[in-house]
Simulated scan of single mutants.
Amino acid sequence: MLLAFVWRAAAIVENRTIDNRNGDSHTFAIPVYRPGNVWHGKGCTTCAISPDENKAYDGTWSAATYRPNRMSSLNISFSFEGTSLWVFFILENGQKPGITENTAVSFTIDGNPDGNFVHLPEAGKGLQYNALVYSRTGLRQGQHDFLIDTTGDQEAWVNFDYAIYT
């Protein structure tokens, strides 16, 4: 009887969160941001776009503008152990003329390209919180490496808020 209980306890499915700044709720690992000197969050006094900390997950976010004339790429990486992953950004919508507001990223999981996401601002809609930009279910149970990357010749604003994995 005890063995049956232990087996059931081991089979419980659980969602865990990876916050952009506070890291993985289970392992406490923090996402890696490259290049490290261009990422900003709450309290940034020089940022043209300032999300509301009351609407961001855990009151934090990590944002940067990809500038192809200054960097070869802009990326975020983290690992997780599970079978599903959902990634959420904060998106900008036509608030400030002359500011880069579009978002364009590609995703790689376990070294394999796995799609991309593009958001073009919609004038007057303001910031969009909890925006699902990536979703993958049916992964093999185990450790996975995930990369969010921006490259190319167009500027892009990237604002990572959090991820959830099962």
Rank of each mutant, 00 (worst) to 15 (best):
M1A: 14
M1T: 15
L2M: 13
L2T: 13
V6L: 06
V6F: 01
R8F: 13
A9N: 08
A11L: 12
R16M: 06
I18D: 00
I18R: 03
N22L: 15
N22P: 00
G23H: 10
G23K: 11
H26L: 13
T27M: 04
F28S: 12
I30A: 02
P31I: 04
V32H: 10
R34D: 12
R34V: 11
R34Y: 14
V38I: 15
W39T: 11
W39N: 02
G41L: 03
K42P: 02
K42G: 04
G43L: 10
C44E: 13
C44A: 15
T45W: 07
I49R: 03
S50Q: 14
S50V: 10
E53C: 05
E53V: 11
N54I: 04
K55H: 07
K55L: 15
D58P: 03
D58W: 05
G59R: 05
W61P: 01
W61A: 02
S62Y: 06
S62K: 14
A64P: 03
T65E: 14
R67P: 05
P68Q: 10
N69M: 06
N69Y: 07
R70N: 13
R70F: 10
R70V: 09
S72T: 12
N75A: 06
N75H: 10
I76L: 09
S77I: 09
F78N: 06
F80R: 01
T83H: 05
T83Y: 04
S84T: 12
S84G: 07
S84E: 13
F88H: 12
F88M: 08
F88W: 05
F89G: 00
E92Q: 15
E92S: 14
K96Q: 14
G98H: 09
T100L: 03
N102P: 03
N102F: 07
T103Q: 03
A104T: 04
S106Q: 09
T108Q: 08
T108H: 09
D110N: 15
D110P: 06
G111K: 13
P113G: 07
G115V: 09
G115K: 08
N116E: 11
F117C: 03
H119V: 00
L120I: 04
P121F: 05
E122T: 06
A123I: 11
G124Q: 03
G124M: 04
K125P: 06
K125S: 09
G126E: 03
L127W: 00
Q128L: 15
Q128M: 11
L132T: 11
V133D: 00
Y134Q: 05
R136M: 02
R136P: 01
T137G: 14
G138P: 01
R140W: 06
R140H: 08
Q143E: 09
Q143G: 05
F146M: 11
L147E: 09
I148A: 00
I148G: 00
D149I: 14
T150C: 13
T151F: 05
T151L: 02
Q154N: 14
W157T: 07
W157G: 11
V158P: 00
N159T: 12
F160L: 05
D161G: 02
A163N: 07
A163I: 11
I164L: 13
